[in-house]
Every structure is written in structure tokens, then in C-alpha cells.
Design a protein around this nucleic acid. Structure first.
Lengths: 210, 210
DNA sequence: CAGGAAAAGTGCGTACACGCAAGTTTGCGT
DNA sequence: ACGCAAACTTGCGTGTACGCACTTTTCCTG
């Protein structure tokens, strides 16, 4: 039912999208994020500046997209791939961690770049929201038709938790707050686990209700 | 400990903010949302266009802010006001519903306006995210220092759920999906209750863990 | 394999967002 | 009461976002 051979039109679109992503990241690394205008990216990708904005709503999105790629779809697929027996909460948690730690060398370099500019950091954190639609779909599949709204809420909560985890991870260092304990920002998997853990009871209850 | 008499500076800031809000809403109602430029709003409020953007990051924010006002703070206060005995999940749910249904006549008219333009609709939905910081604070107070991250996740989840509820509420009509059931978009309180319900188990577990 | 409909790309014009470097007002210590 | 420092406002300049009308490309159906 899925993927009836994608036509030329769709393939060209994806090619343009990727060309813009790659051009944006390359230029940003080469000359620094602030020395890249959309005009430069568009030119490097061989399209008009106007077309750039048909694909990305902001200058930062293209740069960030090169790192993010299609992580959203991969997370959803990873959840769907788990056997139906495992707890939904575990399936989601592991799928998220799995797809966020499969990071190549080039991506790591790009992340360092991203942390240096607030605008890029924000754009990167915003990508976490992108996992909501596909996650909603796979969760809804497990919960059945009655749990459509619940699936949506849970998916959105996961997206929010992931955002929080990423935020904590990108945070410079553990600050020694007045009278507070030191909170060393752990590894990314740890941050993700900690952020997603509080949602597990909600998943369990939703699953039980089917 | 709070509200050491706010100085002149702060009062002027709030006055400017409100002047901009009111001017934006009034002009939008008078001549239609698309016939209002930031320049017009700024002029009507007696400040420079540049100052407008010191208060609001987008053209739509000011219009929406006139309806939203300081709902975020009121929700947090309403939660804090509940006796310590009640379930945290219930306290939050009731506080949210309470503050979202205290809607005057003028606000209702403005909401009709908002639904007519996608940009305004989006800006309005984005305001739901604003409840996260104050909610985080009150929830963290109940959970203690150990549950800081949990409080953050729960607050963000509530914000996401509220957004979903508002989205469903603003949705025109129940669509008769192929083979699916009719889903009449209920009243706002109903939507909020339905969206927040799945999170209750997470709140209960968090409370139990203290 | 035409030929028309739909979609993607483009040029142009307008308005918006925001950094920067003044100028102005408020707050506070002495 | 004075005056300095911090905060707020503003003008200016640059780059970005996007609506609209038009051209080019891809798709589909007879």
C-alpha cells in the first residue's frame, strides 16, 4: 500500500531539499553561521532565493535539517518495529534513544557549531516537535481508535520531554545554585531516559485501557 | 516576599505593553487583521515601530496577547491556591479549565476574529506554551527538589495537552472520517478534560514518589 | 502521444525582525 | 540633591519571510 514508486517530481523535490541542507551546513561550517545568507545557500544549491523559502521557513532550518535529517520518521519506524509484547513506554523510550545516539562524526561537528549560536540552538530544539505526528500515528495504532486523542497527547508529551532532555544536554555545565545540589548534565541517553521516565505511568495506563 | 512596590519603570513598561495589545486588537477588529501593519499599531500606541518589536516578536503576538492577557500567571496562582490535600492532577486540570472559561464578551468576539486567519490561530495556539514556566514552578514546589526535572516534563506535557485541546476546539466540525466515528468537537472544558486526563497517572506517580 | 491540469520554480515588491549605536529616562547610592 | 549606571526607547540599515503573478516542468488521461 505504501511507496508506489515515487515519481520524478517527488525525487526532484527531495534532491532540492537535500541540496539546500548540505549547502547550508557546508557554508555554515566553512565561514561561520553568521556569514551565510539565504542567497548564498540558494546559489550554492542552484535554486533561487525564493525557492529556498518554499522549503525552509527560516535561515536556520536548513542548517539544522542537515543534522536532523529524517530522524522523526526513523523514530516512528523504530517504535513500530518493536514486538507488540513490550511495554509501549519502553518501546518509545528505547526507540528515541536509539535514533538520537546514532550520530556520525560529521553530525557531532555540526552540533558544536549549533551550540555557538542561540538562533541555531533554538531551531535545533524546535525539531524535536517534529516527532509528534509520526509518533502519534504509531501510538494510535497500538491504542486503537478509541485512544486517538490520548495518542496525540502522549506523542506531544514525548516531544516536549525530548526537547527538555536536549536542552539540558546542551546546557554548558552543572551550575552550583545557591543551596542547591550540583546537577551535572549527564550523557544524552541519560538525559532522555530521565525526561521520559515520568511519562511511563501515563503510557501504562493508556495501554491498560485498551 | 513578593511585590516590593513596583517602581515607575516597571509600571510604564506594563502600560506600554497594554497600550500595544489594545491598539492591536482594536485596529484588527476595526479594519480586518490583514489591514493592520505594525507601524499602525505602534503609532496608535504612541511608540516607535522599533519599540513594538521590543515587546512582541511578531505582528500577531500583540493581537493574541490582548485575549490571552496574563492567563499563565493566573493558572499557576490557581493551582497554588488549591489545598495541599487534593490530587495534583485534579488541581491542575481544574485550574486550567477555570482560567480558560473565565472569558468575557470582548474576548469571545476576538476569538472569532482569530479563527479567520491561520497566522493568528497559530499565534494563539503558541500562547499555550507560555503556561509551562509558571506551571513548572508550582509543580516543582509540590514535588520537592528531587522532582525538578519531572515537574518540567509534566508542565510541558500539560502545555502540549492544552494546545491540543484548543486545536480541537477551534476545529470547525466533526468530520465523518471513512469508517470512523463522528467526533463532535465538544465544549472547551470537555476538550481540556479529555486532553489532560491521560496525564493524570503521570501526576499520581510523581506525587507518590515524594 | 497529444494536450491540458497540477505542481514546482522564479522575479518582484512589501512588510517584518532585529543588531547596533546613539539618545533619553529611571533608579539608587552618597 | 547630585550624578552615575543601568534600563528603556529610538533611528537606521540589513537581511529575511512571503504573497502574487507568471513561466517551466511533470503528470495523467483519453
Amino acid at each position: 500500500m505504501r511507496t508506489p514508486p515515487p515519481g520524478l517530481r517527488e525525487r526532484k523535490k527531495q534532491a532540492t531539499r537535500e541540496a539546500l541542507r548540505e549547502a547550508a551546513l557546508r557554508l555554515a561550517v566553512e565561514r561561520g553561521p553568521d556569514q551565510v545568507r539565504v542567497e548564498d545557500i540558494a546559489e550554492a544549491a542552484g535554486v533561487s532565493p525564493r525557492t529556498y523559502n518554499n522549503y525552509f521557513a527560516s535561515r536556520e532550518q536548513a542548517i539544522v535539517a542537515a543534522v536532523t535529517a529524517d530522524r522523526e520518521a526513523r523514530i516512528a519506524a523504530a517504535v513500530a518495529a518493536r514486538p507488540a509484547g513490550v511495554r509501549l513506554a519502553d518501546a518509545v523510550t528505547e526507540a528515541v534513544i536509539e535514533q538520537y545516539t546514532n550520530t556520525g562524526e560529521r553530525e557531532h561537528e555540526a552540533l558544536l557549531l549549533i551550540t555557538t549560536r542561540t538562533a541555531l540552538r533554538d531551531a535545533f530544539l524546535d525539531t524535536a516537535a517534529g516527532i509528534e505526528p509520526p509518533l502519534t500515528a504509531v501510538i494510535a495504532e497500538r491504542l486503537g481508535d478509541a485512544g486517538a486523542r490520548t495518542a496525540r497527547v502522549l506523542a506531544a508529551s514525548v516531544a516536549a520531554a525530548v526537547r527538555i532532555a536536549l536542552e539540558g544536554w546542551l546546557q554548558p555545565g552543572g551550575s552550583f545554585g545557591a543551596g542547591g545540589l550540583v546537577v551535572p548534565s549527564g550523557s544524552l541517553p541519560d538525559q532522555l531516559r530521565a525526561a521520559l521516565a515520568p511519562l511511563a505511568p501515563a503510557f501504562d495506563a493508556a495501554e491498560r485501557h485498551t
